[in-house]
């Protein structure tokens, strides 16, 4: 048995790829544009809610876990090594080489902002995968470069397959008593077996793909582009609102909203008109995602 769920395939992409690209792209740009930790936290919460509603809590947790470690390390390193802040929260004893370690409120907030930005960027990518398939997105780009988009789609399909093959080979090696952990020389020897097997299985897999392509007459006639689903009302609303949210946020950023000053003294984080702007952006990015009540 494979670990794939047999009876309950994941819900297919509900959005037109253009709408998904517009929405996830807006989140990504906002994540890069804003530095105010409160604004970034709000954006992260909104994105998480959308991923969870599309794919469930586990999917969100799985996608965010590696990024969370990175985000935390950003924050911790900044707190330890940045001494530019003036509001000291803690000062340690004098140590050789590093002197007196200190933790300032400014360094803490800057670290939080950098960590949140990482989480928003990762969430935006996951959001795109939740709202559309990579294949749909590549199809959208395929008008300009059909061969490249098809190659990219095939490669995207092969990566998870290779990952599964690698996991299977690791299991088979472990079951035969090969130690994949432990001292370096042993690990190098084991890795040699691992990568050789992976190489052979990948070559066999690509051979099968070539045969399957031939059996489906690939390359025999000018391939007709698949009939693309027209964007629906919801797609248009989501794409339109994403563009509007981005325009609004850019206009706000022109007046310094969404950005924050951290050093030498942090703040102010709330500016006049900032909260209404944030609320408006949040409402625009939520449009199309809140299901209507039956009969409403």
């Amino acid at each position: 048995m494979h670990h794939r769920a047999s009876g309950r395939p994941r819900r297919a992409a509900p959005l037109h790829p253009a709408a998904a690209l517009a929405h996830a792209g807006a989140v990504l740009i906002l994540g890069m544009l804003w530095s105010n930790p409160a604004w970034l936290a709000a954006l992260l919460a909104l994105t998480a809610a959308q991923i969870i509603s599309a794919e469930g809590w586990r999917a969100w947790r799985r996608s965010i876990a590696p990024a969370a470690a990175l985000a935390l390390s950003f924050a911790v390193f900044n707190v330890i090594f940045s001494h530019a802040g003036t509001t000291l929260l803690w000062r340690g004893p004098s140590l050789p080489l590093v002197g007196e370690p200190s933790v300032s409120l400014e360094a803490l907030l800057f670290g939080a902002s950098a960590g949140l930005r990482v989480l928003v960027v990762v969430s935006a990518c996951r959001l795109l995968a939740s709202l559309s398939t990579l294949q749909d997105a590549l199809d959208l780009l395929g008008r300009a470069a059909p061969k490249s988009s098809f190659t990219a789609a095939l490669a995207a399909l092969l990566i998870p397959r290779m990952r599964r093959d690698l996991a299977g080979i690791r299991e088979a090696l472990r079951a035969r008593g090969v130690r994949l952990a432990g001292p370096l020389p042993g690990r190098i020897l084991a890795s040699r077996h691992l990568f050789r097997a992976l190489l052979v299985s990948s070559l066999e897999g690509s051979w099968d793909i070539a045969i399957a392509l031939s059996c489906r007459a690939f390359g025999s006639a000018r391939r007709r582009r698949p009939r693309r689903r027209r964007p629906g009302t919801r797609d248009s609303v989501i794409a339109g609102c994403a563009v509007a949210a981005l325009a609004l946020a850019l206009a706000g950023a022109w007046r310094g909203m969404g950005s924050a000053v951290f050093y030498p003294v942090a703040g102010p984080f709330i500016r006049s008109g900032g909260l209404p702007l944030l609320a408006a952006v949040a409402v625009l990015l939520s449009a199309g995602f809140i299901p209507a009540r039956d009969g409403a």
């Binding site: 399909l157 793909i209 489906r216 390359g219 000018r222 007709r224 582009r225 698949p226």
Partner: peptide, 21 residues
């Protein structure tokens, strides 16, 4: 699994006829 070429079942089934033009 080794002869699946597309991400969704619908696209998988459509792929051959599309190639026939």
């Amino acid at each position: 699994e080794r002869q699946l070429l597309m991400a969704t079942a619908e696209r998988e089934i459509a792929f051959g006829p599309e190639n026939l033009g």
